[in-house]
Structure formats: structure tokens, C-alpha cells
Design a protein around this nucleic acid. Structure first.
Length: 544
DNA sequence: TCCGGAAGTA
DNA sequence: TACTTCCGGA
């Protein structure tokens, strides 16, 4: 380590407050103790002393302008012990944030960038732990006053980097440090303090979430936190004394709803129907990383509803283990018409229901809508790269999936509310003889289905058919089928059009059932071009 | 001025 | 992995 250049951004041994580990490393960079550039940028932005160097841009939340690129680079270089640092290099590092969606460039404005807080902040929102009363738990440690600070609560316990040491952010130590931080010294931050990492005040933030252990019974340690928090309603909006700042002041004076931020982000594109207006005022007495809970609630709910209503992959939903969205409240409101042209259809019937439907349909045809009473469920997008074997719906896999889905807001069967983000049960064995299937036509049994059933007599498939993707095979079948052609002519059923459950039943009657996707009907709406295109799962091990 | 590839580093 | 360094190109 070079003298005068502190690499150790996080002094061990209790020298005041510090970022939790995740602030220094991403999930994929365990061990790194270096502060990240975006932290540093935020740090600079927070300090009035550096307003002539870097400052929030007027007009847009999260947008900032580097007024003195050389100086910023110099500061960064000092922090990182890279005396050769310059703006060119720094900006290269910033550009790497584009892909991570932490930052993006404001085009047309020199040296102007913008934080992407929807990505930066949201994945960590579950840390917010607010009592239904809307009051910070009594166990929450006191917050130092008159200091601007970044707040970095402990790691998400779901995060692999969660190595929060018990007591590190304990209320007691925080209290002590809080007092330490408010020891009467001028709040004007010395440059050296900023640069050498010697307990800058943003490290003295109070970890409200440390109190969540108290709230949830204490002694949490590394245990997974049960999704036991619901975001309460707040009638008091956050204040935004600094309109350029993307951070909000806590609605509770001195005790913000501190939201951790993490650069460890999913790159999965997410459709947000609502964006919060996070804000922070570095220059007020409660300038933690704070967010207006009401907005956040709205935001999270919107997002959850997006997942729910639009059958998005739960992967598009940030990790909010504690956030539950009542399904019934996830209807698409008329006043908020969907911006998507996707035709939503009722979820598919489960295996039992499907069998029931099948049997009853022999007596009297039923329409999909008649199956509607099935309680809505959220589909789980199958992993595209999943091995065909993985499509077998073993109980084990279902359990894994349930665990997987546990990372997203969901009601699990554990909770007795029915699986929400649960994968539909795939029939382990499809009817061996499709109803109405022309018997002269040998069944197409793919290798996968053969594997799957292990019992069905294997009928050699035409080589060309075998090489054909299941989807095309199904299409060919469909097109070859006279009844299907009739239906198509009538405009009632189109291969690429709205087929829905009728298509499914038709297909089940006339085509090789093993090739019929057992996933959700919504996928059929336009399953060749819609976003659901990846959703159909061929029961015989659809793979693409 | 900005971008992004490529290679190197800790 | 998160930059750092270098560089050619727009």
C-alpha cells in the first residue's frame, strides 16, 4: 500500500462506519474491498465542496455533470492510487457502467451522465423494514444528525455476498459511531477525509435494517429472512430539497427509510410501469439513501403486477423477498390500460383440471373461457438452456423451482395461499393415443418424449421430421390437418394468430399430444412472435 | 468528445 | 470482477 493513498476503503476493526461488504464488491467479485467508481461519484456529488467539480444536473433526477473532468479523475486516481488516472480512463470505467445499467450517458451534454436508479436501487429495496405504523422500529439506532451520508445496510441475506458480521452494524456500535460522527466537528468534509477514506461521514449511516433482526425476532444472522414485511402506506411524501438529487429525504426526520444500493444487477430487461423518484439531499440533516415509501410501494406493486399481469418472468422482478403482492390487486386497471398489445389469456388448467376438461370435453366441448374459474397463477418462464431432462416435472424439480421462485415475490404453497410463481405441473404421461388422431398416421414420438415416458413404443420418425424443431413439426401437423385448415380458413384459428385454448384442444385431438406445449395458453396468442415465444414447453422435451 | 474492443491487473 | 490502460474509430 502506498503512503498517502488509502486502498483500504473499509478499515476493519471498528474504526467508524463503513459500507457493508456488498458496497465494495458485487456478487460476482467476492473479496474486493475497493470502493467502486459509482460510489465515489455519488460521494463527490454529495459533498458541497465538490460542486464545482461535479454536481447534479438541473432538470433530471440522477443526472449529473462533471464540471471538471480532470479534477474528478485526479480525485479518483488518488482514491485508487492511480496517479496516472485521467478523465479518459475514468470515462472508460464509466462506460462500463452502461452495460451494467448503473449509468448512462446523457447524449448531447458534455460530461453529463445519469444514474439509473431503477436498477441501482430497486434490487435492494426489501431491506426497508418499516413497521405498519410507519414508524421506524424502536430498536433502530439513533441517526447522527447534520450529516449527509450514504446508507448501506447489510447485505441481502439472499445474496451470496452476504457476509454481514453480526454486530458490525449493530445498533449499539452504530450508536457509538453515530455519536462519534456527530462529535461537534464541522460537517465540512475535508478533502483528505474524502480521499483517504478515513471514516467519511457517509460511512456513518445507520443501518436501520440491522433493526430488522429485532423486528423479526432477532438473531437473524445469516438466516434467510422470511418474507414478513409489507410496505405500509405512507401519507407523508418525501421531500426533495435538492431537485437535482435523485435521492429523497426520509419522510421521517433523521430516520430515513434507508435504501441500500447495489451494483449487482440483473441485466434482464424489465418493463417498469412506474418509476420512483428517489431522492437524497446531501445537505440536509437526513440525507441517507432514502426513498419515499409510498412511491416505492407503488413502484414495487406496479412491477409485481407487471410480472403478474403480463406473465413476465419473475426474473424480471428484482429480488424483493419480503414484498408480497396480493394477486387480486394485480388486475390491470382500466384507467391504466396496458401498454402492451399482448393478449392475455386465462392461465392454463393444471393437470388435473386438464384431464377433467379433456374428459368432459368428449361429452361437451368447452371453451377456454369456461375454464376461467381456475385461480390465476403466474407462470414461470422455463429456463431456455434447460436440459430437456430438466423438463421432467419431478417433485424435486418443482421444489427447486419453488425455491427459485422464492426469490421473487410470491405466495408459495408453504403459505397456504397457492402457488403463484409456480410452474404448472406437466403431465408426466400424455395420453398415448390422441383422440381423433388419424390412426394411420404414425405418432411422432420424439426422443425426448420417449425418454420421458420410457414406456411409449417408439415409432420411427421421418428423418426430416426428426430434425425439424418441434414447433415446426407441430405447425406442419396443423397445416396438414384438414380440420385445422378449415378452422384456419374460417379465421377462427390461425397458426400465428389467436389460438388459445381452442388451439390447444384442437391440437390435442388431432396432433401428437406429446408435441403440444403444456405451458400456458397465453403463449399461444402469438407464440411465434410474442414475448412469450420462449414459453411453450413441449411435453416431450421441447428444446430450441 | 465519446465509444467500445482488447489486453492487463489486482 | 471491476476496473486500468491503450487505442482506433466515429
Amino acid at each position: 500500500m502506498k503512503a498517502g493513498c488509502s486502498i483500504v476503503e473499509k478499515p476493519e476493526g471498528g474504526g467508524g462506519y463503513q459500507f457493508p461488504d456488498w458496497a465494495y464488491k458485487t456478487e460476482s467479485s467476492p473479496g474486493s474491498r475497493q470502493i467502486q467508481l459509482w460510489h465515489f461519484i455519488l460521494e463527490l456529488l454529495q459533498k458541497e465542496e465538490f460542486r464545482h467539480v461535479i454536481a447534479w444536473q438541473q432538470g433530471e433526477y440522477g443526472e449529473f455533470v462533471i464540471k471538471d473532468p480532470d479534477e474528478v479523475a485526479r480525485l479518483w486516481g488518488r482514491r485508487k492510487c492511480k496517479p496516472q488516472m485521467n478523465y479518459d480512463k475514468l470515462s472508460r470505467a464509466l462506460r462500463y457502467y452502461y452495460n451494467k445499467r448503473i449509468l448512462h450517458k446523457t447524449k448531447g451534454k458534455r460530461f453529463t451522465y445519469k444514474f439509473n436508479f431503477s436498477k441501482l436501487v430497486m434490487p435492494n429495496y426489501p431491506f426497508i423494514n418499516i413497521r405498519s405504523s410507519g414508524v421506524v422500529p424502536q430498536s433502530a439506532p439513533p441517526v447522527p444528525t447534520a450529516s449527509s451520508r450514504f446508507h448501506f445496510p447489510p447485505l441481502d441475506t439472499h445474496s451470496p455476498t452476504s457476509d454481514v458480521q453480526p454486530g458490525r452494524f449493530s445498533a449499539g456500535s452504530l450508536t457509538a459511531a453515530g455519536q462519534e460522527s456527530s462529535n461537534g466537528t464541522d460537517r465540512k468534509v475535508e478533502l483528505s477525509e474524502l480521499e483517504d477514506g478515513s471514516a467519511p461521514d457517509w460511512r456513518r449511516g445507520v443501518d436501520l435494517m440491522s433493526s430488522r433482526s429485532a423486528v423479526s425476532g432477532g438473531g437473524m444472522g445469516h438466516q434467510k429472512r422470511k418474507p414478513d414485511i409489507m410496505l405500509p402506506l405512507f401519507t407523508r411524501p418525501g421531500m426533495y430539497p435538492d431537485p437535482q438529487s435523485p435521492f429523497a429525504v426520509s419522510p421521517i426526520p433523521g430516520r430515513g427509510f434507508n435504501v441500500p444500493i447495489s451494483p449487482a444487477l440483473s441485466l434482464t430487461p424489465t418493463i417498469f410501469s412506474y418509476s420512483p423518484s428517489p431522492g437524497l439531499s446531501p445537505f440536509t440533516s437526513s440525507s441517507c439513501f432514502s426513498f419515499n415509501p409510498e412511491e416505492m410501494k407503488h413502484y414495487l406493486h406496479s412491477q409485481a403486477c407487471s410480472v403478474f399481469n403480463y406473465h413476465l418472468s419473475p426474473r424480471t422482478f428484482p429480488r424483493f423477498p419480503g414484498f408480497m403482492v396480493p394477486p387480486l390487486q394485480c388486475q390491470v386497471h382500466p384507467e391504466e390500460p396496458s401498454q402492451f398489445s399482448i393478449k392475455l389469456q386465462p392461465p392454463p388448467v393444471g393437470r388435473k383440471n386438464r384431464e377433467r376438461v379433456e374428459s368432459s370435453e368428449e361429452a361437451a366441448p368447452v371453451t377456454v373461457t369456461s375454464m376461467a374459474p381456475v385461480p390465476p397463477r403466474i407462470k414461470v418462464e422455463p429456463t431456455p438452456e434447460r436440459d430437456p431432462e430438466g423438463l421432467r416435472q419431478s417433485a424435486q424439480e418443482k421444489e427447486e423451482l419453488t425455491q427459485e421462485a422464492g426469490a421473487v415475490p410470491s405466495r408459495t404453497t408453504e403459505e397456504g395461499k397457492g402457488t403463484v410463481f409456480a410452474r404448472p405441473a406437466a403431465p408426466p404421461v400424455w395420453p398415448s393415443v390422441p383422440i381423433g388422431t388419424p390412426s394411420e398416421e404414425p405418432l411422432e414420438v420424439s426422443e425426448d418424449s420417449e425418454d420421458r415416458t420410457g414406456k411409449e413404443p417408439s415409432v420411427p420418425e421421418k428423418k426430416e421430421d426428426a430434425l425439424m424443431p418441434p414447433k415446426l413439426r407441430l405447425k406442419r401437423r396443423w397445416n396438414d390437418d384438414p380440420e385445422a385448415r378449415e378452422l384456419s380458413k374460417s379465421g377462427k384459428f390461425l397458426w400465428n394468430g389467436s389460438c388459445g385454448g381452442d388451439f390447444l384442444r384442437k391440437a390435442m385431438k388431432t396432433l401428437k399430444p406429446a408435441l403440444i406445449p403444456w405451458s400456458y395458453p397465453c403463449c399461444f396468442t402469438d407464440w411465434q412472435t410474442s414475448p412469450c415465444v420462449n414459453l411453450p414447453i413441449m411435453s416431450d422435451g421441447y428444446k430450441d
